[in-house]
Write a protein that binds this DNA or RNA. Structure first.
Length: 621
RNA sequence: GGUCCCGUAGCUCAGCUGGAUAGAGCAGCUGACUUCUAAUCAGCAGGCCACAGGUUCGAAUCCUGUCGGGAUCACCA
């Protein structure tokens, strides 16, 4: 809270505790006092629930409410009136308090944002594979990661935004092989294709060629023999071969063999393979970078799997010495987590090579060495819940200094109305396509409803872009991350109701008022003499008061949707005020000045809040 | 089968550290622009908060069980 105004909620809790002491001779913790914001059908700003005091007071709730209410109003200047309804004590905070509060935050351009606390944390997000372009799932990930980073920054932390780029392995080799065999030297330039999409095309092509090969094999003597030998009772061919795909790839496929050979050549550092790998990854990065730019995100540090995939073996050895891991006769190393209801988990293969877990152990340590962060957040879909539970448990057992600060921001998958996105069925929503679509929709909306003709074409384009991106981003970020969400492309471009453009619209109104107030030469100091706050004005002030609280909660619970819904509610209340009460048209000078001031703070808070979600505000729309 | 997550209006979602009559938006119907931007506002209609028990003065919220949906349990990443 601010230094110049008291924290009204805290004051109320403390005063209630004092009141209980004075009236009923009982000591209670101020923080245990149950406070709610008053429902809008009753008069008041805050409501004290008095039921918990019935035992110590041995009186009826209504009577306690009366007694406590009288005590508060008599003893504390900030509490002006009260009423009691069915055992709920509704408190009206004084106009004077709210006006001082508003003055205080009017002077703080960064109201809600804490100053640096000198502490450092890391957030990992996006972390794509380099064999195909980004899709809708990445967008949710990226928005969550970006917003979480902004939220921790808003709470005073320095945030290192990072990702681990999965640039090696069999997947990229498939793209490489397909390009080498079938590409005829084509390039993104020669085909006028966005470069990451270009590489993705060859990944898809590989899958097609592989399927063709697989089909032929299924009809061959060998394929038939395998089927009759290995298929379970009653299992039909289609089902069997679907499951058998990986084994076919590893044991019989010619293409599979070529891809694996390529991977081995890469691991051996064979020059032409490494050069091809560099070329194709270069294309992918170029494409990613324009997509990130469109989404308005950037990173401070990139880690590449090609650099880190051998890490972690030292940690495993240390763990062996400490007795945290155990070695089998074949040389493989395991962690036994059965005592905490998890399984035995392999951390090193029998041939001594690293698995995914090994890498992650090593990468965590590397990051700590690089940046000395006290917390690390991994934004990764919930299908990897188990992996991270194990990873964090292992790092804890290793006694790593940052182990208590590890958090897996686990989010639900994004479904389409038609069901799950499946790359094989071509239902994956491409990130670039989606961005283009939502901007087109904003263009239509602006043509119908907008009022931006006074701007240059470039400026208009910028406004349209902001509106489209707001629709898309808000639609995704407003959902609690933990939950699986349905992405309906039609709804995602909505610009009315609980949407990004709705909030932008409130801001635009406020911006317009601010500009006009200046030309009118309104004297804001006149606001000092305004009395008799309207219920809507009080409602807005209570919400503004809660802004820093919402930011804090959103960060500590890793849930940006809290800020999204905060912004929506504030915009909604403001729109109602706009409709019901005159601002610049108010006849009384004090009223005019006060509302102009209030509007300006609301605009400021909306802008700050939306910025935490990665959403920009236009000044006109 | 073990473990974890989810189940709230036709649809998409809030509310969950227990508190008043469960809230929004969309879709449907109705009304409000000579007045600071109607991408707005107001109203109508829409709910055994999956189900059954339990704890409590009080349960959508906490506990147990059941049902439904999803994820995961590789010397894959």
């Amino acid at each position: 809270m601010t230094s110049t105004t008291v924290d009204i909620k805290q004051l109320l809790q403390e005063s209630v505790a004092q009141g209980v002491q004075a009236l009923y001779d009982t000591t209670i913790e101020p923080s245990s006092v149950n406070l709610n914001t008053t429902r809008k059908e009753f008069e008041g700003d805050y409501t004290v629930v008095v039921f918990p005091f019935t035992k110590v007071a041995r009186k009826k709730p209504d009577q306690i409410g009366e007694e406590l209410g009288n005590y508060l109003v008599e003893q504390v200047a900030e509490f002006e009136r009260f009423n009691v309804v069915k055992g709920f004590l509704n408190i009206v905070v004084s106009d004077a308090y709210w006006k001082t509060f508003l003055d205080t935050i009017t002077d703080q351009k960064n109201y809600g944002i804490q100053t640096s606390n000198g502490r450092k944390v890391m957030v990992e997000f996006s972390s794509p594979n380099t064999n195909k372009p980004l899709h809708l799932g990445h967008i949710r990930n990226i928005l969550l990661g970006w917003s979480t980073s902004k939220l921790w920054e808003a709470n005073g932390f320095e945030v290192v935004k990072t990702q681990i780029v999965n640039d090696r392995g069999i997947a990229i080799c498939k793209s490489m092989l397909a390009w080498q065999k079938f590409g005829n030297g084509a390039t993104p330039e020669s085909t006028a294709t966005k470069s990451d999409h270009f590489v993705g095309k060859y990944y898809v092509l590989f899958e097609q060629k592989f399927q063709d090969e697989y089909k032929l094999w299924q009809a061959s003597e060998k394929g038939k023999a395998i089927f009759s030998e290995k298929a379970k009772e009653g299992q039909d061919e289609t089902a069997f071969f679907k499951k058998y795909k990986n084994q076919y790839f590893n044991n019989y496929s010619a293409l599979g063999k070529e891809a694996r050979t390529m991977l081995q050549a890469w691991e051996a550092g064979e020059e032409t393979t490494v050069n091809l790998w560099k070329k194709m990854n270069g294309w992918v990065y170029e494409g990613f970078s324009t997509t990130y730019k469109k989404l308005g995100v950037e990173f401070d540090k990139l880690y590449y799997e090609s650099d880190t995939y051998l890490l972690g073996k030292d940690i495993v050895n240390q763990g062996l010495e400490k007795g945290i891991f155990e070695q089998e006769e074949d040389g493989s190393v395991w962690a036994d987590l059965t005592d905490v209801k998890m399984d035995r988990k392999i951390v090193l293969r029998s041939d001594g090579t690293a698995v995914y877990m090994t890498q992650d152990l090593g990468t965590a340590q590397l990051r700590y060495q690089d940046f000395g962060v006290e917390k690390m957040t991994y934004v990764v879909a919930d299908e990897q819940d188990y992996h991270f539970k194990v990873l964090f448990e292992l790092l804890k057992r290793m006694g790593e200094p940052y182990a208590d600060g590890l958090f897996h921001l686990s989010y639900g998958m994004v479904d389409l109305p038609s069901g799950k996105m499946k790359s094989r069925e071509g239902t994956v929503v491409d990130a670039d396509d989606l961005v283009a679509e939502v901007i087109e929709e904003a263009r239509k909306g602006t043509a119908e409803r907008g009022d931006i003709s006074a701007y240059t074409p470039e400026q208009q384009e910028e406004i349209i872009r902001k509106i489209g991106m707001a629709a898309l981003k808000y639609f995704i970020i407003k959902v609690n991350p933990r939950k699986r969400m349905t992405f309906d492309p039609k709804e995602s471009v909505d610009m009315q109701g609980d949407t990004g453009p709705y909030i932008q619209y409130s801001y635009v109104r406020i911006f317009g008022v601010g500009k006009k107030a200046q030309t009118m030469g309104i004297d804001l100091s006149k606001a000092a003499n305004y009395t008799q706050l309207d219920a809507l004005e009080r409602d807005i002030l209570v919400q503004l008061y809660n802004f820093p609280i919402a930011i804090k909660e959103a960060a500590t619970t890793y849930d940006p949707s809290i800020v999204a819904s905060f912004c929506y509610n504030l915009a909604k209340t403001f729109n109602k005020l706009w409709h019901d009460l005159p601002i610049l048209n108010a006849k009384v000078e004090t009223e005019q000045a006060f509302r102009t001031q209030l509007a300006s703070v609301v605009g400021n808070v909306l802008k700050t809040g939306m910025d935490l979600l990665g959403i920009e505000m236009p000044e006109r729309m």
